[in-house]
Write a protein that binds this DNA or RNA. Structure first.
Lengths: 215, 215
DNA sequence: CACTTGTCCTGTCATGCCGTCAGCTTACCG
DNA sequence: CGGTAAGCTGACGGCATGACAGGACAAGTG
């Protein structure tokens, strides 16, 4: 898939080199979790990895380049999000379960990768095409699946014709990302932690089917 | 309200000082629009404002401090968002209009302030309390108003009892913010520009009233 | 074993930004 | 006109950046 791992100056990286490279990526991930993106410095990452800044620049053009690498890897993992909707039904009681499982799985995925996803979101919002591509890649499986579900309901006449399935699906998915990133805001609005998920699931169900779930 | 404007070392700023300070803020705003947050440097802002870095540090502890200032100012402007829902009804045909106007006004506000709102969102997501506070302040008017509307419908028995109005309202508002920041993603999903707003409005209406709008 | 080859890492250096200070200039006031 | 406080900047030590050359190391070769 990725072919060979190469250094900035074109050499192919061997076993040891790849280990160092990976260690740098891991340490960068940690730093992203513990300090603001703006303050993450190459020298800190290198120190944490027990190596020198020069080594970092052997493998990555800059911090952003390394972040893209991490994001790319996570995007591949994002395939698991697709499974949340694989062969699921939106009808009746099982539809409610589908919505709940989707919200559950999505929030969990976001929580596990929150640091890097923050940066991807920022990059995408700033108009960086590479980050946008990664963000879309992660969300595509879910969005596509939701779009499909809405389209089918629409074909059966159970959803209005002037609804744009992709727009609704995209909005629901983007809502999930935003809710995941800003859970703290909800506590400020007096929403308890265990009340959040079912209500989000309700919105998802409403959006997809246009109806309240049968619980 | 804000008392006197002071420099970092405690002096009170006079007319000229305040002008310089404001110029620095304006230039910083521009820089945020044109380059990634991570790459905004004090020296660039100072150069753009026709002054020196040292002057910048007279008025702000660092870039983040100045950004907070801009954000605070924008949050005050955010009062206009409250007017979008002031005395509006969610019943029948006027409910559909309310939803549309809300989406319209919200996306417009976000578009006008997108650069600074990106940074506020990032800061809030990173757990910075000051940014979180500002973000909540901006969204509070709308969220509160929506919560109120849902609560009233709930009291009339038109919305299920196990719905948490604040959770739904918060999720809808956070959806609006995210849609506003990532409109580009929707074009990647094949959603045309003029199709986005009505579909978002539909979701808002569904979320608030639990029913499809009468158009 | 010495030698070669290619990978891997680091010391070092020029450059440029950061953040602070002392000190100069400007404006205001009695 | 002299005093005072505001306003600004040059200059400096410190650190991050990014490039390079060369040393350390592992593995294969004769």
């Amino acid at each position: 898939m990725t072919g060979q791992v190469r250094t900035v100056d074109g050499r192919v990286a061997g076993r040891r080199g790849q280990a160092t490279r990976q260690k740098l990526l891991d340490c960068l991930s940690e730093m992203l979790s513990s300090s603001p993106y703006r303050d993450v410095k190459v020298i800190d990452v290198a120190r944490k990895a027990g190596t020198s800044p020069a080594t970092f620049y052997q493998y990555f053009p800059d911090v952003e380049g390394a972040v893209l690498e991490i994001a790319e890897h996570m995007a591949a993992e994002g395939a698991e999000l697709a499974e949340l909707l694989e062969g699921r039904s939106w009808a009746g009681r099982s539809g409610w379960q589908t919505a709940q499982d989707l919200v559950d799985g999505f929030l969990d995925f976001w929580r596990r990768h929150d640091a890097i996803l923050r940066v991807v979101d920022l990059g995408a919002a700033e108009g960086d095409k590479r980050f946008n591509k990664i963000r879309i890649k992660i969300l595509n499986a879910v969005t596509g699946s939701l779009t499909e579900a809405i389209s089918q309901l629409q074909a059966k006449g159970r959803v209005d014709k002037d609804v744009n399935p992709a727009a609704i699906a995209g909005a629901l998915v983007t809502m999930l990302t935003s809710v995941a990133s800003h859970q703290k805001a909800f506590t400020a609005w007096g929403v308890k932690k265990d009340q959040l998920k079912p209500n989000i699931a309700l919105l998802v169900h409403l959006g997809v089917t246009g109806r309240k779930p049968t619980k």
